[in-house]
Amino acid sequence: MEPMVTDSKRLPRTTERGTYPHKSQNANEIAARLILALDEVRNMDVQTPEHIARALEGVEDVIDKVASPGASKVLQKVSLNIGTVNGGVKQNMLPGVCVVTADIRVPVGLSPDAVIAVAQSIVDRFPEADMEVIGRQEPLWSDPNHEMCKLIQRNVQELAGFTPPAIVSLPGTDARLWRGKGVPAFVYGVTPFNVAMADEYVDIEEVFHVLKTHTLSALDFLMAEK
Rank of each mutant, 00 (worst) to 15 (best):
D7A: 00
R10Q: 14
L11I: 15
P12E: 00
T19N: 00
Y20P: 02
H22K: 11
Q25T: 11
A27F: 07
N28T: 13
E29Q: 14
L34E: 09
L36H: 11
R42D: 12
D45M: 07
Q47N: 10
T48A: 09
I52P: 08
A55P: 06
L56W: 01
L56H: 10
E57F: 04
G58V: 04
G58K: 01
V59L: 06
V62C: 03
D64E: 03
P69V: 14
K73H: 07
V74Y: 06
Q76F: 11
Q76M: 15
V78L: 04
V78I: 09
N81P: 04
I82G: 07
G83Y: 07
G83K: 10
T84I: 12
T84V: 13
T84A: 12
T84S: 11
K90S: 14
V97T: 08
V97F: 01
C98Q: 06
T101R: 12
T101Q: 10
D103N: 15
D103A: 13
I104D: 00
R105F: 09
P107T: 12
G109E: 03
P112H: 04
V118Y: 00
V118S: 01
A119H: 07
A119S: 07
I122E: 02
F126E: 01
P127K: 11
P127E: 05
E128I: 00
D130R: 15
D130P: 05
G135V: 00
R136L: 15
P139S: 09
L140M: 10
P144W: 08
P144V: 10
E147W: 01
L151D: 02
Q153L: 06
Q157K: 11
L159I: 15
L159A: 10
G161Y: 14
G161W: 15
F162E: 06
F162V: 09
T163K: 10
P164T: 04
S169N: 10
L170D: 06
A175M: 10
G182V: 02
A185V: 05
A185C: 12
F186G: 07
T191H: 12
T191I: 00
N194P: 05
V195L: 15
A198M: 07
A198V: 13
A198C: 06
E205A: 10
V207W: 06
V207L: 14
H209I: 09
H209Q: 14
K212F: 08
F221D: 01
F221I: 05
L222S: 09
L222Y: 10
A224I: 05
